[in-house]
Amino acid sequence: MHGPAAVGWLLVALCAVSGGLCLLRTRSAVAEQRGSAGGEALMGFGMAAMAVPAAVLAPPRWVWLGYVAVFGAAALHALVSEHSGERRHRHRSHHLLGMLAMVYMAGAMAGAPSGAHASHAAGGAGGAPLVTGVLLIYFTGYVLWAGGRLVPLPAEAAGASGARGATAAAGWGDRPELAFACRLSMGVAMLAMLLTI
């Protein structure tokens, strides 16, 4: 990806930590959590690899095509899972769109001239402005929505001790706020990466 090296390293760290937390969530006792956590871990680690500053490592075109293949297969799996009714819930559509955004970004980098990976080239790397714009609007909305979900509720609105007891009884990887925090951080990273396309 293009952009200052410091921003790239911060994105690498953010995505790697998010991927690691999602990987820990795959050990959840809740089947729905395990299913979505595996795909999110793949996306977190993939985003971390894609965010390595180009000045440090400028991957050849075949690496970007490999990303396209991996995330294309993951998007196909998410699409089949959603339409077959397997693990069907609200987050599946977001997960599918995230995988497709990864395919889009990797495809844009694969199609960039070789010199564009090392530095900004006028009119070099980049996807279709309309697609990039739509993805930026979607992920901005998602980040705002997910961030709002992390804001603590007053005890009366949360159902007082009943909600607290259920959260305390849940395992560390089963906590819904951990899933939202991972998704929020990956949404922020997706925004930053889309801005560099």
Results as ranks from 00 to 15, higher is better:
residue 63 V to S: 10
residue 63 V to E: 07
residue 64 W to I: 06
residue 69 A to F: 09
residue 70 V to G: 06
residue 72 G to K: 03
residue 73 A to T: 06
residue 73 A to K: 02
residue 74 A to I: 02
residue 74 A to H: 05
residue 76 L to T: 08
residue 77 H to I: 02
residue 77 H to D: 04
residue 78 A to V: 02
residue 79 L to Y: 04
residue 81 S to K: 15
residue 83 H to L: 12
residue 84 S to E: 06
residue 85 G to F: 08
residue 85 G to L: 06
residue 85 G to V: 04
residue 86 E to D: 13
residue 86 E to Y: 06
residue 88 R to F: 12
residue 89 H to N: 14
residue 89 H to E: 14
residue 89 H to A: 09
residue 90 R to Y: 07
residue 91 H to V: 05
residue 91 H to R: 12
residue 92 R to A: 10
residue 92 R to W: 02
residue 94 H to S: 14
residue 94 H to Y: 14
residue 95 H to M: 14
residue 95 H to L: 10
residue 98 G to D: 11
residue 99 M to C: 13
residue 100 L to G: 03
residue 103 V to A: 03
residue 103 V to S: 06
residue 105 M to D: 01
residue 106 A to I: 03
residue 106 A to K: 00
residue 108 A to G: 09
residue 109 M to T: 00
residue 113 P to H: 12
residue 113 P to E: 12
residue 113 P to D: 11
residue 113 P to M: 06
residue 114 S to P: 15
residue 115 G to D: 13
residue 115 G to C: 03
residue 116 A to G: 10
residue 117 H to A: 10
residue 119 S to H: 13
residue 121 A to C: 10
residue 126 G to D: 13
residue 128 A to I: 03
residue 129 P to F: 03
residue 130 L to F: 14
residue 130 L to W: 15
residue 133 G to W: 05
residue 133 G to D: 13
residue 134 V to C: 15
residue 136 L to I: 05
residue 137 I to W: 01
residue 138 Y to F: 12
residue 139 F to R: 11
residue 139 F to M: 08
residue 140 T to P: 07
residue 140 T to L: 11
residue 141 G to L: 04
residue 141 G to C: 03
residue 142 Y to C: 10
residue 144 L to V: 11
residue 144 L to M: 04
residue 147 G to P: 03
residue 147 G to F: 00
residue 147 G to N: 03
residue 148 G to W: 04
residue 149 R to Q: 06
residue 152 P to W: 04
residue 153 L to E: 10
residue 153 L to W: 07
residue 156 E to W: 00
residue 156 E to V: 01
residue 156 E to K: 00
residue 157 A to E: 15
residue 160 A to H: 03
residue 161 S to L: 05
residue 162 G to A: 15
